[in-house]
Design a protein around this nucleic acid. Structure first.
Length: 283
DNA sequence: GTCCAGGTCGCGC
DNA sequence: GCGCGACATGGA
């Protein structure tokens, strides 16, 4: 057992590194963290009171100018998580002339919280398909508990240690276990190359098509993945989008997807973010 | 028991 | 290309 009692960090683990990572002027920490549901999925933990976002191996806060990261502060991963590389300037300009988006600029809305890795984002998107949110939360927690190491989100190698049946049974993944196992296997044996798939030199349309080749990822998931990449040309059409547009603009009447999407055409490469802002502002 | 949830896939036409 | 049913799970 550990007999360490002092406030000093245990000698077994290195002293936690502290890093400061500067953020763009239009960056709003709380807005990004709560931009969508990811902060409620393991291993993320969010304390609204402390304004601290935690994962198994890091603790992140913001002092107004920079992110303060205690623990494993891989800069590339931090930048990915908070979309620090995404320039939302053009979107902000557009919101100034749209009444439903009048609050966006002041609130600092525009960046979406991502996982440190594309793999984690893909899995979590699969976990959101055709289930209730409460089940998504449970499946993510199960994946971390059953397959992850020391509270971390499982890597492809961690997943491949289990059979699809074991994943289904122990993580309660349902039929999603097949796609998740195939994805992990493909990455582990290099038949799926996520870096090549998400090559930023590709056009958004090409990226979309690339994501569609991934097991468990259809048009909804591909659009969602693009958004995590800061590209909002495609709206992830799902029951939530249909409900919102139907109730907000069509008095609850049924309309085609094409009609719904037409409403956001004027937003150009910011369609999904524009819709997401409206949905977000509704709360 | 039935329906459905921030869908995806494979099949038949 | 497009429509349709199956697909695990758990809550309403």
């Amino acid at each position: 057992m550990v007999r360490q009692r002092s406030a000093k960090p245990s000698s077994a683990g290195s002293i936690p590194a502290v890093a400061s990572i500067f953020t763009p002027p239009d960056f709003n920490f709380v807005s990004v963290v709560t931009s969508h549901g990811w902060y409620r999925l393991a291993p993320f933990r969010w304390s609204a009171e402390e304004r601290v976002l935690r994962r198994n191996d890091m603790e992140i806060s913001h002092d107004g100018k920079a992110l303060r990261v205690v623990g494993n502060a891989d800069r590339e991963q931090i930048a990915r998580m908070f979309q620090l590389h995404v320039d939302i300037g053009e979107f902000i300009v557009l919101t100034r002339s749209s009444a439903p988006h009048a609050w966006v600029e002041e609130h600092g809305f525009g960046r979406l919280l991502c996982a440190p890795t594309l793999f984690e984002d893909i899995l979590k998107i699969i976990l959101t398909t055709n289930v209730t949110w409460s089940q998504t939360v449970k499946m993510a927690a199960n994946l971390v508990d059953v397959c992850g190491r020391k509270g971390a989100f499982p890597t492809p190698r961690d997943i491949v240690r289990f059979t699809p049946e074991e994943l289904k049974e122990r993580c309660r993944l349902g039929y999603r276990a097949t796609a998740i196992h195939r994805l992990a296997t493909g990455i582990a044996d290099r038949s799926i190359d996520l870096d090549a798939l998400s090559d930023p030199k590709q056009s958004t349309e090409e990226l979309f098509e690339s994501y569609l080749t991934l097991p468990g990822i259809g048009p909804y998931g591909a659009a969602h993945l693009l958004a995590m990449y800061g590209r909002h040309d495609f709206i992830a059409v799902d029951t939530e989008f249909r409900r919102f547009v139907r109730d907000t603009y069509h008095k609850g009447r049924k309309v085609s997807d094409a009609t719904m999407l037409r409403r956001y055409a004027k937003w150009g490469r910011w369609k999904y973010l524009a819709y997401w802002a409206e949905l977000w502002g509704e709360r």
